[in-house]
Design a protein around this nucleic acid. Sequence first.
DNA 1: CAACGGATGTTTTCCAGCGAACAGACTCAG
DNA 2: CTGAGTCTGTTCGCTGGAAAACATCCGTTG
Lengths: 218, 218
Amino acid sequence: MNLFLSGTRETCKKEYPSIQLASLPDKAFLYRQGDCCSSFFWIKNGIVKLSHLTKQGNELTLALLKTGDIIGYLPGDFTNQVMEENAQALGKVDFYRLEYSDFKKLITSQPNLSWQILESVYTRKQLIERKLRAILTQSIEQRLIVVLLELAKLFGIRCTHGYALEISLTQQELADLVGASRPVVSTIMNQFRNQGILDYTREHICVNDTALLLIDPR
Amino acid sequence: MNLFLSGTRETCKKEYPSIQLASLPDKAFLYRQGDCCSSFFWIKNGIVKLSHLTKQGNELTLALLKTGDIIGYLPGDFTNQVMEENAQALGKVDFYRLEYSDFKKLITSQPNLSWQILESVYTRKQLIERKLRAILTQSIEQRLIVVLLELAKLFGIRCTHGYALEISLTQQELADLVGASRPVVSTIMNQFRNQGILDYTREHICVNDTALLLIDPR
DNA sequence: CAACGGATGTTTTCCAGCGAACAGACTCAG
DNA sequence: CTGAGTCTGTTCGCTGGAAAACATCCGTTG
């Protein structure tokens, strides 16, 4: 899934002059909520967190993106758009960046690429819908397990009795991810540890395979 | 915004043999949750409700679509996909229907069309994200006003002191739309009526302009 | 007109989870 | 070693809203 498969680097540069490769360190922002940002980003390597800061000061994580995903504001006739969320690097992130007009040109000139991107946006929509459903119907406990298993699938490295997460999340960040308050997440995580379905230290989480038994398959 | 602008009806038929114009009466389903549906729909006229039925038997409305919107499951290598939601006609609906393969062909062969559809899917993603944020941060009262104003904008007909909705929603449907329980919606609607910010009967809702004053602009 | 079914209005009970508040624990800089 | 800052664990009171349960109200149909 290489965005630039269709040509050499040089022809790319000529066709889409705004393309540039960049990278950011841990916790740096690709853009911030409220920014006017007419760029598109294609993650080459790393993890990006999309989150929204509410007026009350709570953070709500909308998605974690990784290699191959795209970020950017699509619609609108205006070249500058106010972003509704933060895009923040979780660990070091390498990415390509290009401007709105070039992106549009790229899409319209490369049909199968456009289909890929359509699929990716659609999939993200589905994920958000699932999250919405989860929040309206499930307890925090259930949501937390589901999220942990998702994380294990996305960022997990197989270890002896489960998956170790290769990202380090604080309990606050976990709480933002499931849409809950920090204290509740804390106590539930302890319960889980006591029940042996996961193990964690301050900087490391390991989800055991037994966690799978706790979610009921649809 | 005509999907088939680019050719005569006849060439269309030849290029994309599965295209057909159809219509459904009020409350009929385009497809149901759990169905395997490899078709795409393009709404020519009318309103379609996308909703999800939870295991507990609650319905959750994800979106109301109208003329020009598209529906269908996008990603995946399998021709048949299990739908995660119901698509139900609200009033009479006319629509075009075409199969996955033809849709893909259409998209990849018509660049600017693909851009349009990308925008539309992206916009729907944004709307769901906003809904999520609203549910996690606002009271039902606030959400209800916002939803009513959205409805007024989408389906409202200007009347003397506000907007009359051209669709008839029961309070249950309204509750599904804001993600709340029916009794609460009922009492709040009464409060609103008493405060004069809206008026309604069993089959008709009219949102007064004063409702605008109650939401705080971002 | 009776009676039935669906929509609305209202009350009561109950609890998940939030916010605040504080006490460890760990980590890093000086 | 010491203090500051950050993360974790736990408690407690409070409340928004869900669920259940009825009591109307209205329209439809036999």
